[in-house]
């Protein structure tokens, strides 16, 4: 966590130097900074190489692409505070909206690229321990007494907000489902959370390495990564009956690319996410690709499940944020002492 803050400071300090070298010669290699969130590290490392090669075949100099990772909200704040990002690839639209609010990105950013500017999707799954000793099958099983659940703090983690909304969407769909019932369900769930880490990676560590909790609410791709990293742990992925369609959005940072003269490069970078290469890489790193053919080719890793959207269930991110996660919202009520 500290390392990412440090590297960002270095990048901020280095940004003017990058501009200077770029102005020096016309055909010189351009630089591109992608400011992203935590679990995309492995994906963008490979994607950057793929895009650089594609860009070079168009007769351009091979660009230098760097990617910075951290909690989605914190990354957005760094861009607001002046980090010279060319593109942002964050966990939720709300964070990009906050940047757009300050005039650094055009307000209609979400309509500039296909699929709500989200080239890949993900969802929330349940990760359980070897043999699933607590017999977790669906969200309802998490609410049984004696089941301990690990999820990060929705106040500080974008991923945690998706977790919370997924449970809410499921609770609404149950017999007699109502906002009151859903609030009861999330209240019950967070009473069974022993540790609220600040980010998704921290929670993964708490669950996998510290051995805390029976179930871990995880990004689908993060769950697959945990299985890969700790094959001897016997962790199992459980797909609930209904989950949420997470659409991590991407956008060109208009103010920065215009100043640095990198708009063409930045736009091509994001468009590359929608190409066959980009989609295939997304699938390889456990993001659900938008391309139907590539999705069905990987159907075994992306089992079909009902996915609710934030727009349908919550009326968009701005609404969800205001109702649930802002100060005094539903989430705060959970921790208000009962008198």
């Amino acid at each position: 966590m500290n390392a990412s803050i440090l590297s960002r400071r270095v990048l901020v300090a280095a940004a003017p130097a990058l501009v200077a070298t770029q102005a020096a010669g016309q055909g010189a290699a351009q630089t591109l900074l992608n400011v992203s969130y935590d679990p995309t590290r492995e994906f963008y490392r490979e994607f950057n190489a793929s895009f650089a090669a594609a860009w070079a075949t168009r007769g351009q100099a091979r660009p230098n692409i760097s990617t910075s990772h951290g909690g989605s909200g914190r990354q957005a704040r760094a861009v607001i505070d002046g980090l010279q990002a060319d593109v942002v690839t964050l966990a939720l639209a709300y964070d990009i909206d906050e940047i757009a609010e300050r005039g650094i990105i055009a307000r209609d950013w979400q309509r500039r690229l296909p699929n709500n500017s989200a080239p890949y999707t993900s969802t929330v799954v349940l990760l359980v321990r070897r043999g699933n000793p607590k017999q977790i099958r669906d969200w309802g099983d998490l609410l049984r007494t004696g089941v301990s659940v690990v999820t990060p703090n929705p106040k500080t983690s974008g991923g945690a907000r998706w977790n919370y909304l997924a449970l809410w969407a499921w609770a609404l769909r149950q017999q007699g489902g109502s906002p009151q019932a859903a609030e009861q369900a999330v209240t019950q769930l967070y009473r069974q959370v022993p540790v609220l880490d600040t980010g998704a990676r921290g929670s993964t560590t708490t669950f996998v390495q510290r051995g805390v909790g029976d179930v871990f609410l995880s990004w689908e791709n993060e769950a697959h990564l945990a299985l890969q990293e700790f094959p001897q742990s016997g962790l199992e992925i459980i797909y609930p009956s209904l989950s949420i369609l997470a659409e991590p959005p991407v956008a060109v940072v208009d103010a920065n690319v215009d100043r640095r003269g990198t708009r063409a490069l930045a736009e091509a970078y994001l468009q590359h996410l929608y190409t066959e290469d980009g989609q295939r890489l997304a699938a390889k790193h456990h993001y659900r690709p938008r391309d139907a053919a590539i999705l069905s080719a990987n159907a075994s890793r992306f089992p079909g499940m009902e996915l609710a959207t934030v727009d349908d269930v919550f009326g968009g991110w701005a609404n969800a944020q205001r109702t649930h996660f802002a100060d005094g919202g539903v989430f705060d009520r959970i921790y208000r002492p009962r008198r």
Binding site: G71, R74, R77, I80, E98, N153, K155, T156, D327
Partner: peptide
């Protein structure tokens, strides 16, 4: 941490 939480909400 509470300070950080407030910052995450852009407050």
């Amino acid at each position: 941490l509470l300070i950080l939480v407030k910052l995450e909400q852009f407050d």
